[in-house]
């Protein structure tokens, strides 16, 4: 949720190794990263600081398992809680483009009050945090038990005609307006 922004980050792991030459921190063994409502679980999480100053992070699942993340979404007061669940063999974060990429048996689900509303599956799901747009690519590598062909499968549940609350235009929450160009702060 928006309020996650300045929450402290908690990381737990079995081990951590920092290498100044390569500017990397690698956390290994039952890694749990939490920040506000975000919870990320993986076997290893490594964070690299690129020369351009941006950070790139990769979360890897243990063999045969999936790395997962879960987050609360901002909802209007009084609205039921919405969470975003992601899972994949590999979750990458690009600090420059602010895109989270789920790779290998990728699945992104949105739940309202714990009930599944939308789900997309595929080989690769790229989710842009700024534009709230996500793209899904198919491919055999994306095959899972529930999606043997690995084809792109997106299931969207139309918003029920809310009696009082204004009906949300589309299932993904309102798109954010891209920051106007103008002078950078």
């Amino acid at each position: 949720a928006q309020t996650d922004r300045n929450q402290p980050i908690h990381i737990e792991a079995d081990a951590m190794r920092y290498d100044d030459v390569h500017q990397t921190s690698v956390f290994t063994g039952n890694v749990v990263v939490t920040k506000g409502s975000l919870v990320l679980r993986a076997a290893t999480v490594d964070v690299r600081q690129a020369p351009d100053g941006y950070q790139y992070a990769t979360a890897l699942a243990a063999p045969g398992q999936l790395a997962t993340f879960q987050r609360q979404l901002d909802v209007a007061p009084g609205q039921p809680a919405q969470t975003l669940d992601g899972a994949a063999q590999r979750i990458e974060y690009d600090g420059k483009t602010d895109v989270v990429t789920l790779r290998g048996q990728a699945m992104l689900s949105r739940l309202i009050d714990g009930r599944l509303m939308d789900r997309s599956q595929g080989n690769v799901i790229a989710y842009n945090q700024i534009t709230d747009v996500f793209t899904v690519e198919g491919g055999a590598a994306g095959a899972t038990a529930t999606n043997p062909g690995g084809r792109v499968r997106v299931m969207l549940t139309p918003q029920p005609p809310a009696s009082s609350a204004p009906a949300a235009p589309k299932s993904p929450p309102a798109l954010k307006v891209a920051p106007k160009l103008g002078t950078q702060p």
Binding site: N6, D74, Y93
Partner: peptide, 22 residues
């Protein structure tokens, strides 16, 4: 909707244990 992962990773590696080594 906008939990900013950028902030998360930015903070994560800004702490540098290397300072400690001195």
């Amino acid at each position: 909707m906008h939990m900013n992962m950028r902030q998360l990773w930015l903070r994560l590696s800004a702490w540098s244990p290397i300072v400690l080594l001195a």
